[in-house]
Design a protein around this nucleic acid. Structure first.
Lengths: 260, 260
DNA sequence: ACAAGTGATCCCACGATGTGGAAAAGCTTG
DNA sequence: CAAGCTTTTCCACATCGTGGGATCACTTGT
């Protein structure tokens, strides 16, 4: 059958479920609370369908509905499952390790996974309050994303680069060709760099946490300003990042999947 | 219509969605990875339906399927949305505050919300590695749960006490009557106590984080051993807990919902 | 090694379930 | 006060999901 696509080809069999889950993703880009017709507009569903699905999600605790405004927000079940997933992945162990890295380097340390076409920061540590660039970052314009693209897990490669590469600054790589070459360099050097490609005044190095098969299970980034994270200090930052990555490898991966 | 139930009476309109979301909840009590037939057994669905729904969830990133064993685990989208919900609720601000409480009291500090028939711990801080009693705790046998029951939010009250009150130790309150009286005491004193009712050798005090309408948005618990958390030191623990709760109230609640 | 058992995945006809247009009712805005 | 935009409910239609069963792959027992 359609093996080319990797695992799932036509995810037939649950239109309603797909649509309902799609509703949940609306809360990413838009504000924390959305009205029923907002949801309908953003998903392209009819108001009545969006409303019914939202209501079902409320019933299951995945959405909360404000009594006053009737708007929806993410519900307790989402927080609950997120917490569960967090612990099942052992991510509560990563916090202290990232703190250490952040304090040693005086920078911000972030640990991310890939979720569809995004890098998602799951744990962060910072010496200062943190600039908070967002939890969900593009793959092509961030160091985290490049790492995740350079060592994709099986089934992630095919998803490829999702459409056009949106430019954020004049340094953002927007040519697919150039990006592929960049990824070669990343694989070669073992780390990715983001020098103001997603925002001016931010420089980031990222390294992968690889499993035994050589796929990136996590990406670890150290983020600072170009003034602090200079070319000549880069090896020093990288050294600390690699130390942390190998510690995380031990903490987060089961022994039989750990890289040798 | 059936107004007695509060908001949603028969959550009609999305059987498939309800079932699919039900699958996700299977990962709570059972291990971190389940097979398709496990899911079918635990939800009472036919294998074929469970399989199809699980596949759809994989397609949406809510489940991950192991390439080798074909078993399922919670996927990146769950982690992602959990993280989003976490931040939208401002819970990343709570960590340092709980750390402070934990260090001041030498105990473990937990912040929880109610999710259906459970208290769910969303943020925790501990001086030692933490005993880890679980993320999802019963309402009737924990201090956190009693607080959430004593000051229920609108729409939570009706859900009431879910069926029989399971005994965990010989101190667990199993009589609904007694529990109701206990909740009166909790409201009167402004705090809840759990003296070995969910596990021997664990003593917990909890206080609510109330909103303007007098409903508990969060429950804050300080947990230690009966030797350290004695009756005579209780006021001291309580004082610290209340200080922390009021700090959290400022951090977590929007100004117009904060208790006066 | 063979047989029996268990689990994953696919197929298909039936009909229950979800769909969206329209309409009622409530709120906000100018 | 009316116009516009919500949220919410209703209903007939047919689409979409359902579960029994078949197939294939893999593990277990003797």
């Amino acid at each position: 059958m359609a093996e080319a696509a990797g695992v799932q080809s036509p995810p037939t069999g649950a239109q309603a479920v797909q649509r309902a889950l799609g509703l949940l993703h609306c809360f990413h880009d838009n504000g924390p609370d959305l009205s029923a017709s907002d949801l309908a507009r953003r998903t392209g569903l009819s108001v009545s369908t969006a409303h019914r699905l939202a209501r079902t999600l409320v019933g299951a605790g995945f959405l909360d509905q404000d009594e006053q405004t009737a708007r929806y927000r993410l519900g307790p079940a989402v927080a609950e499952l997120g917490q569960l997933s967090f612990h099942q992945r052992g991510l509560h162990l990563a916090g202290p390790e990232l703190d250490l890295l952040a304090r040693r380097t005086g920078a911000t340390a972030d640990l991310a996974i890939r979720s569809g076409p995004h890098a998602v920061i799951l744990v962060g540590a910072s010496v200062r309050p943190d600039t908070g660039l967002g939890l969900r970052r593009p793959l092509h314009s961030t160091a985290l994303g490049k790492v995740l693209l350079a060592w994709p897990r099986p089934g992630e490669a095919d998803a490829g680069l999702p459409g056009p590469l949106e430019p954020f600054t004049d340094r953002t790589i927007t040519e697919p060709e150039l990006l592929l070459r960049e990824l070669d360099l990343v694989r070669e050097s073992g780390h990715a760099l983001n020098d103001g490609e997603s925002a001016a005044g931010v420089r980031t190095v990222a390294v992968p946490v690889l499993d035994r098969s050589g796929h990136a299970r996590f990406a670890l980034a150290v983020r600072s300003t170009p003034e602090r994270l200079t070319d000549e200090r880069l090896p020093w930052f990288l050294g600390h990042a690699r130390t942390c990555a190998s510690a995380l490898s031990v903490l987060l991966l089961p022994p039989d999947q750990r890289a040798g």
